[in-house]
Design a protein around this nucleic acid. Structure first.
Lengths: 334, 334
DNA sequence: TTGTAGGCGTTATCAT
DNA sequence: ATGATAACGCCTACAA
């Protein structure tokens, strides 16, 4: 039903290959027919079939991006970074929702692969370096975030970022500092936990394992974790959270418990979402270079697509942003 | 390089068509060869090419969803609703980022069309009923949200929702009620504005055009709009916001101005995002049946794909959710 | 400069 | 029950 190259050929009185050449700017074609064919194509409403084209050229000019879930605010600048560079290079970008589920992630990657995308970027993978074992099942370039054990990965410096955050709290006099983790971000979580531990050790503070608690990166989990931590016989005076969402949940829990931030408790997030500066109170947090992360990832992917494989994992710096959720530790007297 | 149906045929000592039949559960094939071929396919790591298949069957089992931007929190349940039903019916769902730009929206729809997706859902269209004119350029099913003037559309009852919100404020004694609009959601915005106007008129309140101001649905725009409204000689005592994000911006502005919510000013949002109940204070807002919106849209799209065209625009009910950002209007004495 | 022929991976229509 | 054959829409040698 839709108009094909043959239809144009017939209308123009030339062969299909001539049409193809006219449309694809082939060098050896007369300016006249080229112009005529192009006008005809436009007038007839011709749209090339990327299916057919991809089948023969083995190039679909498509990038698949697997994301944990739409509306993860962390993703916006990251995806924008990807898109900007992808479009510059003539690629379309499509997103697939994974919902932090390993099975779904495999399905999404598979459905990208079945459609012959040129390459895949996975944000928030539940598989991580497992992709090394999936190379023969999915023989196409795949780039990850925050997985230093995988050769094609772009990360934030989670370790240093965490160190900055916790050092900031220590400097404010806090000694009982909680860490609320994220079980779904295995690698990033590990690095942040390491940073947390390191600073506490270096500051000579005794580590209390009760202060490290599991979360899942959502507001709700921050709320729940904070509730549990507050119920301890010796509750923390400060909360270092895996991300800003968790931090918002914590602040909410504190508010419900009648506590004020930062007077009674301090909270530090991670990410520096757009929302962070507009939360109430504005969040102290560790900024990730999200837009850059996206750009580096797509550059790496394009390199891989072009056949390079001498690439190194990249690590971008994090930066502490002090706002209004951190303050001096309450004195013991209180 | 990847293994094709021919490779399997060769390995199994049968013809390609037999392999195709074995894999697609064709009725006329012996159980033996079917089993043998299937095992071989699995062992050899065969993945069907949806490009090739789609080319001949004209069916790619793919739904394209155009969204304004990843990380619009409003979209999460909506997309989940779409995915749930789509997957049940054997379709894959891919998202394309439009960034509220008309040109980009056309590009995304075009790139879906070039890839022969079975149908398209557009959330937050900048084109709306303009798709009627694009029917010959994109001859495939397209479903929209919140566009009653387009035949294939699913909407929230924005009018009634707005009425509920404003009536709630009026009941609390508010007379100077601002409306902060969203220029990018043309249709939805129009209906909400109408509801706002109607309730004010019915309550005998004189409409002050200065209290209706343009926004773009972001926190930042809420912040800005509230700042301007507060600078009026007679500032409003209540803010009805196009959405929750705007409301959060407003609350932020109020906080910066040293005002308390809901003691000094009342704020109502729209959407009832997950975040709304966790904001500080928890938002009074109008709930949209987001998940259902998605489900209805995909059902409508699947109907269209199957050739039905006797469909009607659908309108789902909205519901006021009263939380902690609305209270009695301050007395004039204050 | 243009046309012809072959093929990309798959399914569908005929035969057998 | 299985095998040839053609076709989907497009590109690309090769030939003219």
């Amino acid at each position: 039903m839709p108009v094909t190259i043959k239809d144009i050929a017939q209308a123009a009185g030339v062969s299909p290959s001539t049409v193809s050449r006219a449309l694809s700017d082939h060098p050896r074609i007369s300016a006249g027919t080229k112009e005529r064919v192009r006008r005809l194509a436009r007038d007839m409403g011709y749209t090339p079939s990327i299916l057919a084209r991809g089948l023969v050229t083995r190039h679909t000019a498509t990038i698949g991006v697997a994301i944990t879930t739409v509306s993860d605010p962390f993703l916006a600048p990251l995806v924008r970074g990807i898109e900007a560079i992808a479009h510059e290079n003539g690629y379309s970008v499509f997103l697939g929702n994974v919902h932090r589920d390993r099975e779904r992630e495999l399905q999404v990657v598979q459905s990208f692969y079945e459609r012959w995308v040129s390459g895949i970027i996975v944000a928030g993978s539940q598989i991580d370096e497992g992709y090394l074992d999936l190379r023969d099942r999915f023989p196409l370039p795949i780039v990850l975030f925050n997985c230093r054990t995988y050769p094609y990965s772009v990360s934030t410096d989670n370790l240093i970022g965490a160190c900055q955050a916790v050092a900031h709290l220590v400097q404010l006099g806090h000694r009982r500092i909680a860490y609320i983790a994220n079980q779904y971000s295995y690698r990033a979580n590990l690095d942040r936990l390491t940073g947390y531990r390191r600073v506490l050790e270096e500051s000579g503070t005794s580590m209390d394992p009760n202060l490290v608690t599991e979360g899942d990166g959502t507001i709700k989990s921050g709320l729940k974790a904070a509730g549990e931590l507050l119920a301890l016989s010796q509750p923390p005076t400060a909360f270092f959270c895996f991300n800003d969402m968790t931090a918002m949940g914590v602040i909410n829990a504190l508010r419900r418990a009648g506590l004020q931030v930062p007077r009674d408790k301090s909270v530090v997030g991670f990410d520096d979402l757009d929302l962070a500066r507009y939360y109430n109170p504005p969040l102290t947090t560790v900024r990730q270079p999200t837009h850059q992360l996206g750009q580096r990832a797509i550059r790496m992917l394009l390199d891989l697509i072009q056949g390079r494989d001498d690439l190194q994992p990249e690590i971008l710096p994090a930066e502490l942003v002090v706002r209004e959720t951190t303050g001096p530790a309450p004195t013991l007297a209180q």
